[in-house]
């Protein structure tokens, strides 16, 4: 069973055991517009919560994606380098950014569930 949580910065985390898969929400991609480039963190990098972990660029601008929690990057989605537009077409599934080992489960406590996130973007 996975649980999906959300940040106020419009990232989603699918929690499966001690691993979280991280991406940006459909709302975020709709605000960014056409994504033309994604820069992902290096596998093995240890991220601290709120530090810039990835960059997503539209035709107009570059936006940082912040680490929603702390932990080690286990895997990144190389498909996004070849096809950045996946972020627009399938933000909350195929266009995941990276997987991170959850270093501190207490950090999950500050995240939103789907209902709370919906209210946040309403």
């Amino acid at each position: 069973m996975t649980t999906t949580l959300y940040t106020s910065d419009h990232e989603w985390l699918a929690i499966d055991g001690d691993v979280a898969t991280v991406g940006i929400t459909d709302y975020a991609q709709s605000q960014l517009g056409d994504v033309v480039f994604v820069e992902l963190p290096k596998v093995g990098r240890t991220l601290k919560k709120t530090e810039a972990a990835a960059v997503v660029e539209s035709v107009k601008a570059a936006s940082d994606v912040y680490a929603p929690i702390s932990g080690e990057v286990l895997e990144v989605n190389d498909a996004l380098s070849a096809e950045p537009a996946l972020v627009n077409s399938d933000a909350q599934d195929k266009a995941w950014f990276f997987k991170i080992r959850i270093a501190d489960r207490s950090e999950l406590g500050g995240l939103m569930d789907e209902a709370a996130y919906k209210a946040h973007t309403a």
Partner: peptide
């Protein structure tokens, strides 16, 4: 800055 079609399609 853009319409619903988006910058890429407009371009």
């Amino acid at each position: 800055v853009q319409y619903p079609a988006g910058v890429l399609k407009e371009h």
